[in-house]
Each structure stands twice: as structure tokens, then as C-alpha cells.
């Protein structure tokens, strides 16, 4: 009883998550509690298990142990509350489909088997496209889009889901400066409207500017919390293993 109400206040609650493959431990005993309404970055060196963490949370990657709860309930029951934005590079962009089609895919979870996207879903998709500035490109074949445009489409697809939690894997990788700014503004807007955002991020320099929470990860969770408290040299050193000095440009 006591546990339930305490834990359900967290948007995302990960307990004892452990993943190992190919005889190597990749994620160990991860405890991660993310409160509602934060814009959080997950950082760590290459091979730290950041993508794996995301995939394990979403049930895409098999885990050896651990539980994942969304607002106090098991993840499998709460899929509709979570929107995933995978890494751009995992997809074949020569696939025959348009930007509009990709965004419409975001409505499939809500539709369930056998139903087709109706006017309502199409309008939602168009609105999402507008939001990310891709409406003029809606009928463009995705292979003709630039890296930044592709990333926007992925974001639009997630927006359509109307979820409470967004989980994104390196959304700023390989993206032009304008797109980066556009995306982070959308994310901040989402945060202001009460959404929770978990973002795997590769660029330490921009963290204080973009995010309000951070989680340091390197196979184990090193630290998590508000930027002011957690984003410091000590944690950086623990995570990256060297004397990392970060000047925070205000």
C-alpha cells in the first residue's frame, strides 16, 4: 500500500533493471525514478548502455531482471502513455513511403487491429506535421528528406500519439542547427504542458541549456537529478572516467 502511492507519483520508475548479452553485462541494477514534467537527458560514454536502457524500458530488448512502471502501473499496460522516437539510423530511408504516412503510423497504437486511420487521425497527423514545420513536405518520399527533416518526422510521429511520456534516442544526432533549435523548443513546450521527456543525448555542452534533469549512466546509474545538483565535475569524472571539466556557458 505504502509503496504503491509513493511510487506512482513517478512518471517512470525503473527498478533493478539488468541487461547482459554476449557474455558482457551492459546494464546493471538500474534504479531510475523520473518525476512527472521534467525534461531529462541521459548521458554516458559510448557503450554505456544508453540505447539499451531505452530499449529495455520499452520491452524491445530482453532484460535479465527488473521492472518498469509508468505512473505506478506495469509498462505493458501503459504503452499508450509512452511515445518512442528511435535513432534515425535504425531505419531504411529508401522505404517507399511518404512523410505523411510515417506520421500516421503514430496513430496505429490507438487504432488497434483492423481499423484504418479515419479523418480524425489524419487531421491529428497533419497537425503534428505542422508543429514540426514539415507540412509542405507531407507527400515527399522520405528518402528525399534531409537528416533534420527525417528527425522532425520521427518527432511528429511521436507527437500524434498524445502520450504523457516521450522517450527519445539521440534526436539531435546528424541534424542541422535550425532543426536542433526547433526540436528543443518543441520539447520545452511539451515539458511546460506537463509532459515528461527522457532523451538520450550525446553533446555535454548543450545539456545545461536544454535540459532541467540529467542522468549519468555507465553500465550502472551514476547519478540522477536536477541539473543544478547533479551536473558537476564529480559526476562527470565518475561517468567518463577522466578529469572532465565542463564550463557551463550561461
Amino acid at each position: 500500500m505504502f509503496e504503491m502511492t509513493d511510487e506512482s507519483k513517478y512518471a517512470l520508475n525503473v527498478h533493478d533493471l539488468t541487461v547482459a548479452y554476449d557474455f558482457k553485462p551492459v546494464l546493471w541494477d538500474i534504479h531510475l525514478q523520473v518525476p512527472e514534467g521534467v525534461l531529462m537527458a541521459i548521458v554516458g560514454p559510448n557503450g554505456a548502455g544508453k540505447s539499451t536502457l531505452i530499449k529495455a524500458i520499452l520491452g524491445i530488448q530482453k532484460k535479465i531482471a527488473g521492472t518498469v512502471e509508468i505512473f505506478g502501473k506495469p509498462y505493458e499496460k501503459m504503452r499508450k502513455e509512452v511515445a518512442y522516437v528511435p535513432q534515425k539510423g535504425t531505419v531504411d530511408w529508401d522505404f517507399p513511403t511518404t512523410a505523411f504516412d510515417v506520421v500516421k503510423m503514430g496513430t496505429y497504437g490507438e487504432l488497434g487491429w483492423f481499423r484504418r486511420p479515419s479523418k480524425k487521425q489524419k487531421i491529428a497527423a497533419l497537425e503534428a506535421l505542422e508543429k514540426v514545420g514539415m507540412l509542405p513536405f507531407k507527400n515527399r518520399q522520405i528518402s528525399q528528406l534531409s537528416g533534420g527533416q527525417q528527425q522532425r518526422i520521427f518527432l511528429a510521429r511521436a507527437l500524434v500519439q498524445n502520450a504523457s511520456i516521450y522517450i527519445m534516442d539521440e534526436p539531435f544526432q546528424g541534424v542541422d542547427a535550425t532543426t536542433e533549435i526547433a526540436i528543443i523548443n518543441i520539447l520545452k513546450e511539451l515539458r511546460s504542458s506537463g509532459k515528461t521527456l527522457v532523451v538520450v543525448h550525446h553533446d555535454l555542452q548543450t545539456i545545461p541549456e536544454y535540459f532541467d534533469w540529467v542522468t549519468f549512466l555507465n553500465v550502472k546509474k551514476i547519478a540522477t537529478g536536477p541539473i543544478k545538483e547533479i551536473f558537476n565535475d564529480e559526476n562527470l569524472a565518475k561517468t567518463y572516467g577522466i578529469n572532465y571539466k565542463v564550463t557551463i556557458n550561461k
Binding site: 539488468t18 547482459a20 531482471a65
Partner: peptide
């Protein structure tokens, strides 16, 4: 068989690390 053994060891290690904390 290695995988089975590995799974066991990983779980044990998870338990130990948990206790350790």
C-alpha cells in the same frame, strides 16, 4: 548451456549488488 549458466550468474550478481547497496 553457457547461456543458462550466464543467466544464473547474472541474476546472482544482481542480487549481490543489490544487497551491497
Amino acid at each position: 548451456s553457457l547461456q543458462k549458466r550466464q543467466a544464473k550468474e547474472v541474476k546472482m550478481l544482481t542480487l549481490l549488488l543489490h544487497l551491497n547497496s
